[in-house]
Write a protein that binds this DNA or RNA. Structure first.
Lengths: 237, 237
DNA sequence: CTAGCTCAGTTGGTTAGAGCAGCTGACTCT
DNA sequence: AGAGTCAGCTGCTCTAACCAACTGAGCTAG
């Protein structure tokens, strides 16, 4: 029945064509509308909130959620962390997922990416070099922006969101479990090669550049620490 | 605070290295353990259940969930349906996501897929033909199995799950909104071409075969019905 | 007259206690 | 020895009350 409740609220959103950000009935209204107790309404809303379908603001109201990939990131992150601590190579699998998808997609960029995007990518690589020189490390935000900008050229916002979700999940787990510094200079070089390869229109070169980039991360990942070598669990998210 | 509760339960799973299927403390136990009321415990569990992290069985107990991609499918499905009814081309975007990823991945299969997998794929295509002849349509299960088997050859279970999740979401939305029959004979031919192309080791041919397959679906999708042309909402999932 | 404060009302957050419903396992009767 | 039954655990739902965050109208001070 609780399952049914969630579906009814979803149906309500669909039926009323509510866009993201629209306000939903209040809890008492939903109680009467659905003929259940407040408690049940709240449990259903909590579940929908966890799926990003609904957004709850204390003292203000309940709204249709942004329908982002945030819940997927959450789930993927937890799944990976849990697997890691059970001795699985879940983090490596997540990296390989990204590698497979990104090497597969970079070829589609050839002849499709705009000059403006390429210029933006150049700027991002420059920023990586700057950060490497001044702070000794490339900030995660810059790396994230690079990958997001790169695949934005494919013209599919959903695809972009999914890619960002994979990035987010991987990065969150990596910083928690393997707080290892990259060689920031290499990072800049590898990203620049990706941009140059895409600009040159050479599909194979672009794929190789992406593969090399990921290969580097993978090496850093699998080299030193076995998954079970983490005695005091730093997980507290 | 409720947010915090979920994190504490997650932490409990991590700390105790609980595998999928392991039993969690009962609700009263969690009440005492976390120092909150039963209601709050339940809301937290409901949210975790929605994310697939926890599995609740009435009258039996609470268990660590299978950590599958089911919640992601749920979210993606709803997002797509909601977008569709608001006049967006969300279903097309989802299809393009699949097309982009699958055309990107099929090249990686070359020289990596085993003979056994190829044989299985042959059998699946044969079954498609049989179904087309006897029932007039290829069953969704067969199509799903084909795509799952194909990308299983990449040797990354996570990747396989993600691909299946995309397939599931797309299929669920499509059957709800565009209950259109494919020409089953064409379906068989296109799938067979994908298998043959992969077997031949010709990357470009494989990519073209996949692209053609998706192009066919896309055509069927965008041809007849504008999104707004659905007056009586059949959505009741 | 305006800027700022205060307070009442609305909304979600939390707690408590009671009873309902599904499942298991041991006990009992045949 | 086997099948039926019942006690107990488990999660599910409801009611009722109060707490906490936010808004907005009205008041007060400048």
């Amino acid at each position: 029945m609780a399952r049914d409740l969630q579906e009814q609220i979803k149906k309500l959103i669909i039926d009323r064509r509510l866009p993201s950000g629209a306000s939903l009935p209040t809890e008492p209204e939903l109680m009467e509308l659905l003929g259940v107790s407040r408690n049940s309404v709240r449990e259903a809303l909590k579940a929908l909130q966890a799926m990003g379908i609904v957004e709850i603001r204390h003292g203000f109201g309940t709204y249709v959620g942004p329908m982002s990939m945030a819940p997927m990131i959450e789930g993927l992150t937890f799944r990976t962390v849990a697997g890691h601590y059970r001795g699985e190579d879940s983090l490596l699998q997540l990296l390989e997922l990204r590698e497979a998808v990104e090497t597969g997609l970079v070829g589609r960029l050839i002849g499709r990416v705009t000059e403006a995007d390429l210029a933006e990518l150049d700027a991002l690589v420059d920023r990586m070099d700057t950060e490497a020189a001044t702070e000794g490390a490339v900030s995660p935000a810059t790396d994230r922006a690079f990958h997001a900008t790169l695949y934005r050229g494919l013209g599919n916002p959903l695809l972009g969101e999914v890619m960002e979700a994979f990035w987010d999940a991987f990065h969150r787990v990596r910083t928690d479990l393997v707080p290892r510094a990259h060689d920031p200079k290499v990072t800049g070089i590898q990203h620049r090669e990706i941009v140059d390869a895409v600009r040159s229109g050479d599909t194979l070169r672009a794929e190789r550049a992406v593969r090399e980039h990921f290969g580097d991360i993978r090496e850093r990942l699998s080299a030193p620490s076995a998954p079970t070598a983490a005695p005091h669990l730093p997980y507290d998210r």
